[in-house]
Design a protein around this nucleic acid. Structure first.
Length: 468
RNA sequence: GGCGCCGUACCCAAGUGGCUAAGGGAGAGGUCUGCAAAACCUCCAUUCACCGGUUCGAAUCCGGUCGGCGCCUCCA
C-alpha cells in the first residue's frame, strides 16, 4: 500500500506525493526552550519521529528541519504579558541565553532517550533574525503590513485566504473572548511581525531592524527558517493540534503572503496527551516530565511503547495504570523475542517465508495508512504468537518493524547483563540448598536476590535470573 | 458563541458498510515447580453511550439526545 497521510488542509486522507521524486522536505515545530518539555510535548516529537521513519522506510530521503524557539515570547498575544524567557531567567538566576542553552540541551536529552532520530537541521530563532527581517520586508513590499504604535503588524484583511487551514470563518471569530484586544490592530486577528514598543523594554533579547530595535513576532521564525532550509515550497509541516488555529494559520498567511505560492502541501497535527484533569501544561499544574517518569522507575522506552497504544490523531489518556500496562507489555515483548532468539539457530532469518512476508506487508500497510502504529503493533504481537512460522522469521519481522517502532528490540534481546560475583555466589548457594532440599534456605536467598532486583526463575533447563 | 475530535470489555485501545469486533494490561483456570516466579496454553464484549433513520446488511453512513476533551491567548 502506498503511503497515505491525513492532511489538516482539506481535512482528509490523501496519497502522499512529494514535490521532488524520492525526496521529502519536512518541517516540525520545535520546542520553546524556557522550561522542560513535558511528556505531552514529547508525544508530538515521537509522532514526528514515526512519520520520519515511515517516510524513510518508503525510500524517501528526508530533509527534516526543526526550529528551537530561543527568542523570548510574550506570555500572551494581547501584549500584556511578560517575556517567558525573562521569567524563567529570573526564577533560576541565569541569563536568558543560559536558560535557552540549558533547556535546549535538556530537550535533546529527552528525545534521545526516547530514541527519536535527530532532525537533519536544527535551527535556532536567535541565529536567524536577519532572515526574519528579510521576510517582513518582503511582506511590506507586497502591502501586507502596517505599523502602529511602534509595532509592525500583518494585516489579515489583505490576505483573502486567511484561515483556510483551520476552516476559520472570519465573521465568527471571537477575538477578545478571553483576552483584551490590542487597540492598535486594525483587525483583532492581525498579529505582530516585529515588536519595538518601549513597553517591552524588559525584553532581554533585542536586535536592530528597519523598524527600530526590538524582536520578532512568534510565528515569523518558522516561516523564515523553513523556507531558508527547505525552499519556498516544501512537502510536510507538522506540530501539535493546538497550532492549527493560530500559529500555523499565521505562518501560512505570512509565508504565502510573501511568496504568492502554496507554501506547504501536507499539514499533519498530533493530538494531545490528556490527564484526568485535562490538557497537560505548566499552568494547569499537571506537568509530568520524562525525568519524573524515570524517577518512578520507568524506562523512557516504556513511555514510547505507551504512545503506540493510540493513533497519533486521537487524544490519549495518561495514567500510571496505563503506563504500567505499557511497561509490562514491553517487558513481555522482549521476553517473547528472547524466547524466539533462543529457539532460532541462526538468529533473525533474512529470508522470509510466505506467512512472514504477509505479516510484514500487513504491518507496513498499517504504517502507511496514516501512521497507524497501534494497528501495526497489534499485528506484530498477533504474528509473534503464530507457532506455524519459524522463530527466526518471526524475529526478523519484529526487528524489521522496529525500524519504525524504534523500541531497540534487537539491542534488548542481545543484551547480556553481567551479574556481580556476590550474586552469582548466592544463586549457586541457593542451587546447592535446593539440591539438599533445604528449601527454607533456598527461599531466603531467593528473597534476598529479589530485594536486590534480581528475579530467579527455575526452568526445566536450569535456574535463570533477570533484573526486575 | 464558533470550529473540531471523541464515547468499543475492569483499564489503555485498533477497527470507519459485510468473514469469528485487533493487540496489550489486569483477572480466572491449566501445564511446569519442593513452593513460587517466569514461560507457555486456555478463558475473558451475541456487542460497540442512548434514541431514531438509510441499507439485503452499520460499531462503522445520516439526524437527534446525553457525556467527555481540545482549539478560538503563548501553548505539543
Amino acid at each position: 500500500m502506498a503511503l497515505k497521510l491525513y492532511n489538516t488542509a482539506g481535512a482528509k486522507l490523501e496519497p502522499f506525493v512529494p514535490l521532488r521524486d524520492g525526496h521529502v522536505g519536512l518541517y516540525c515545530c520545535g520546542p520553546t526552550v524556557y522550561n522542560y518539555a513535558h511528556i505531552g510535548n514529547l508525544r508530538t516529537y515521537v509522532f514526528e519521529d514515526v512519520l520520519r521513519r515511515v517516510l524513510e522506510r518508503n525510500g524517501y530521503a528526508v530533509t527534516h528541519v526543526m526550529n528551537v524557539t530561543d527568542v523570548g515570547h510574550l506570555t500572551d498575544d494581547s501584549d500584556e504579558g511578560e517575556d517567558k524567557m525573562l521569567i524563567g531567567a529570573r526564577e533560576r538566576g541565569m541569563s536568558v541565553w543560559e536558560i535557552a542553552e540549558f533547556f535546549t540541551r535538556a530537550f535533546f536529552d529527552d528525545t534521545e532517550k526516547l530514541n527519536v532520530v535527530s532532525p537533519t537541521v536544527v535551527c535556532r530563532a536567535t541565529e536567524h533574525i536577519p532572515d526574519m527581517i528579510g521576510l517582513i520586508s518582503r511582506l511590506e513590499k507586497r502591502g501586507l503590513t502596517y505599523q502602529a504604535e511602534g509595532n509592525v503588524y500583518f494585516s489579515i484583511d489583505a490576505f483573502p485566504r486567511y484561515g483556510e487551514l483551520a476552516r476559520l470563518d472570519r465573521q465568527e471569530l471571537r477575538a477578545g473572548a478571553r483576552i483584551e484586544v490590542d487597540s492598535a490592530k486594525r483587525n483583532p486577528h492581525d498579529f505582530v511581525l516585529w515588536f519595538t514598543r518601549g513597553k517591552f523594554e524588559h525584553q532581554a533579547m533585542q536586535w536592530d531592524s528597519p523598524w527600530g530595535r526590538g524582536y520578532p513576532g512568534w510565528h515569523l521564525e518558522c516561516s523564515a527558517m523553513s523556507m531558508k532550509y527547505l525552499g519556498e515550497r516544501f512537502d510536510i509541516h507538522c506540530g501539535g493540534v493546538d497550532h492549527v488555529n493560530v500559529h500555523h494559520t499565521n505562518e501560512i498567511a505570512q509565508s504565502e503572503g510573501a511568496t504568492g505560492k502554496t507554501w506547504v502541501n501536507y499539514w499533519l497535527h498530533g493530538e494531545f496527551l490528556i490527564m484526568p484533569s485535562g490538557r497537560m501544561g505548566k499552568s494547569e499544574g499537571n506537568m509530568i516530565t520524562l525525568s519524573t517518569i524515570e524517577e518512578e522507575g520507568y524506562d523512557p522506552l516504556d513511555y514510547r511503547y505507551f504512545l503506540f497504544g493510540a493513533h497519533y490523531r486521537t487524544q490519549l489518556a495518561f495514567s500510571v495504570q496505563a503506563l504500567d500496562a505499557a511497561r509490562s507489555a514491553r517487558a513481555s515483548l522482549i521476553d517473547q523475542l528472547r524466547g524466539l532468539a533462543a529457539r532460532s539457530a541462526d538468529g533473525a532469518r533474512v529470508e522470509l517465508g510466505h506467512d512472514a512476508r504477509l505479516a510484514l506487508d500487513a504491518i507496513n500497510d498499517a504504517f502507511n495508512d496514516d501512521l497507524n502504529a497501534p494497528k501495526a503493533l497489534g499485528l506484530l504481537r498477533a504474528f509473534l504468537k503464530d507457532d506455524a512460522v519459524p522463530p527466526g522469521e518471526r524475529l526478523a519481522v519484529a526487528f524489521d518493524a522496529d525500524r519504525v517502532f524504534g523500541l531497540e528490540m534487537a539491542t534488548s534481546v542481545a543484551r547480556h547483563e553481567e551479574l556481580a560475583p556476590e550474586y552469582q555466589a548466592m544463586i549457586a548457594e541457593r542451587e546447592a540448598a535446593r539440591k539438599a532440599r533445604d528449601f527454607a534456605r533456598a527461599d531466603l536467598l531467593r528473597d534476598r536476590l529479589r530485594d536486590a532486583g534480581i528475579l530467579i526463575e527455575d526452568t526445566p533447563t536450569g535456574t535463570k535470573w533477570k533484573f526486575v
